[in-house]
């Protein structure tokens, strides 16, 4: 089923080399990233941690091709992102990366189904096929009975699950989550984290930005940022194999 299909390819799906990011000009320059190098293998589950202002959001934006580094290189699946044009970046965001945001970011006044269909529409897929895939994704996340609800008719947990369905519906290699449990209660949080575990188990690369230790506990590798640099990088489980908190795993 769809959670299972992830494309196999280059070993390092993400390869960032000496990336810096400077905001502002002249005297008031803010160095959000001071030369970060990060390589992520396919199938890994990485938590990027850090206090606010550590540069973790900037890093996530760069990984997600929402923003470009001031200096440094970024290879995504072997392709030099800096060399890509606007529409190619749009294609990467569409098919290569699935985003999950803290505030869900569903499009208001639009049904759950239409929200999930949207990336497929931008990918140019036909209506009938789109519908089928979007329904399957929603079903896989236990939302089969909520497809026609608008975001404001759904609970936070449900909204986040719709957002996850939208993120994975194009079968991206990477799922990129920014504080995915930040706006959820503990029950919904557990549910969402279980979904991420599952996604990773099925071979998808998962990168989670968080400041919560419980979230990081689910990752196979924890990278800590401080003042725009990586100061700690711990592997907690092998790249190949289930994530540490996956159900049924013998600790």
């Amino acid at each position: 089923m769809m959670l299972a299909e992830a494309p196999p390819l280059a070993r390092n799906v993400i390869d960032i080399r000496a990336a810096t990011k400077v905001y502002g000009m002249g005297d008031i320059q803010v160095h959000a990233l001071r030369g970060v190098s990060l390589a992520v293998e396919r199938g890994d589950y990485v938590a990027i941690m850090g206090a606010s202002g550590s540069g973790k959001s900037t890093l996530m934006n760069i990984i997600g091709c929402l923003d470009a580094p001031t200096e440094g290189e970024y290879y995504l699946d072997g392709a030099d992102v800096n060399a890509l044009g606007d529409s190619e970046l749009a294609d990467i965001r569409n098919r290569g990366i699935g985003f999950v945001f803290q505030s869900f970011n569903l499009i208001p006044r639009t049904s759950a189904l239409a929200n999930v269909e949207l990336p497929l529409m931008y990918a140019g897929m036909k209506k009938a096929q789109r519908r089928e895939r979007a329904l399957a994704a929603l079903e896989a996340l236990g939302l089969a009975d909520r497809v026609d609800h608008h975001p404001n008719e759904l609970s936070g947990g449900q909204q986040q699950r719709v957002a996850i369905a939208r993120a994975i519906v194009t079968s991206p290699a990477i799922v990129l989550a920014d504080e995915p449990t930040g706006a959820l209660d503990s029950v919904s949080s557990t549910e969402v984290l279980r979904i991420f575990d599952q996604l990773n188990q099925f071979g998808r690369t998962v990168i989670v930005i968080t400041h919560e230790q419980e979230v990081a506990d689910h990752a196979k590798r924890v990278v800590r940022l401080h003042d725009g640099s990586i100061y700690d990088d711990v592997r907690r489980a092998a790249v190949i194999g289930p994530p540490p908190m996956a159900p049924g795993r013998v600790a």
């Binding site: 606007d86 529409s87 749009a90 970011n105 949207l118």
Partner: peptide, 16 residues
Amino acid sequence: TREIGIRKAIGARRSD
């Protein structure tokens, strides 16, 4: 603006 951002994040091109 936010909706435009969401659309762009999930793959909308400029032309879209």
